[in-house]
Amino acid sequence: MPDADLEPVRPWQRRVVLTLGFLVLVHSALLMLWLAPSSPIRDLVGSRNLASYVDPYFQQDVDTVDPSVQFVDESFQVRALVKEGTPKSQVTEWVDLTKDDVQDVRYDPNPARVHLIARRLATNLNRSMFALEPAQRKIVRESKVTDTTSDRAAALNAAGDSSAVVQNYLAYDQMATQFASLYAASKWKGTVLQVQFKVGRRSVPAFSKRHDTTIQDVSYLWFSFGWHPAFHGSLEAQAPFDSFVKG
């Protein structure tokens, strides 16, 4: 038996609830259309119309939930000094390893770990370089192939006030040298004598400029490193690079 104390739902209350429910459905549909890739329905509504609704109130939220959002793009490039059959050695062209990796893993939800190494090195080297003082970055940029690790550590410590920052940089510099050397040995014929690398970093344009500017229009901020003696690894260390580069 119905409770006599309960008041019946009035018509205006039902209309308010239905209206709110309708507005929530429309709002959700517009957000889904705005996040969705191009389609006939999305094109019918219009990208600018969707943006004019979403931008003023929900821009930050959309940045957070957009699965394709990427705030920073980084580059790791390598070149080498190679000697092949003649007394004179040759400097190779720069190779952008991160660019090649992006092409190789496109649409691959589970890429091989080897395709992620160059980008992780770029990230770690960029962070370590930003942590150095300007005078220390100059030392890194102008370092010579004859400089030992101890020489560079002493010079970097003398130009800064944090030995931990210097040790962090030197660790990633060693990783990058070994990676670049093994890659170069697989990439170019002859004997790899020296390697050099540089890392770049650029930020995604402001969300409000997405219709006029893409990340491809933004220039990299580069950190250059001096030449390093090539690292010659074991056959076991070189084999995966041969398979990766030549395969």
Rank of each mutant, 00 (worst) to 15 (best):
Q59S: 15
S39C: 05
N49G: 09
A4M: 11
S68C: 07
S128F: 02
E93V: 10
E236A: 08
S219Y: 09
V95A: 12
L125R: 00
T213F: 00
S52F: 10
W227I: 03
D104M: 15
N168P: 00
S39F: 02
T149H: 07
R210F: 05
A185C: 08
V45L: 11
T64G: 06
I139G: 04
F58V: 06
L25T: 11
P8G: 12
L6D: 13
D66L: 14
I215T: 02
F197Y: 15
V218M: 13
I117C: 00
A230T: 03
V114L: 11
I215W: 02
P37M: 01
R152H: 08
R141Q: 14
E7R: 07
K138Q: 15
P40I: 10
W222K: 00
S186H: 09
A176V: 02
A80I: 04
R127W: 05
S38N: 13
P8E: 12
V140D: 10
Y169D: 07
N124E: 09
D217K: 05
L20Q: 04
P109Y: 06
N49Y: 13
Y172F: 15
W12Y: 11
A112D: 15
T19S: 14
D217C: 05
S219R: 11
D104P: 01
P229Q: 11
N168V: 10
F58N: 08
G226D: 03
T149Y: 06
F231P: 13
D63K: 14
L81F: 12
Q77M: 15
A153R: 14
L31F: 11
D96C: 06
L132D: 02
T98N: 14
A80S: 08
N126E: 12
L125C: 02
V195E: 04
Q70G: 12
K187I: 01
D3Q: 11
A158P: 11
T86Q: 13
Q194L: 13
L235T: 06
P229L: 11
W94G: 08
A239W: 05
P40G: 01
K138W: 09
R15H: 08
Q59A: 15
A180C: 04
Y183H: 08
A185W: 01
F223T: 08
Q103H: 12
Y220V: 04
D96V: 01
E74A: 09
Q216G: 13
S186I: 04
T19F: 15
R79M: 12
T213S: 01
V17C: 09
P134K: 03
D100V: 05
R113C: 03
H228Y: 13
G233K: 04
S39A: 09
K83F: 00
A184E: 09
A131W: 05
R42L: 05
L25P: 04
W222E: 00
P40A: 04
R210C: 08
L20N: 09
V9G: 06
D101G: 13
L97K: 03
A80N: 04
R141G: 04
D147Q: 13
D5Q: 08
W227G: 01
T98V: 15
P111I: 10
L221P: 00
Q59G: 11
D3M: 06
T214N: 01
L182I: 02
P37I: 02
A122Y: 02
P8Y: 06
S224C: 00
G226R: 06
P229H: 07
K198G: 03
L97E: 04
E236N: 03
V69C: 02
S28C: 09
D173G: 02
A36H: 05
H27R: 04
S186L: 03
V195M: 03
K209F: 05
V204P: 00
A164Y: 06
L116F: 00
A29Y: 02
P229E: 05
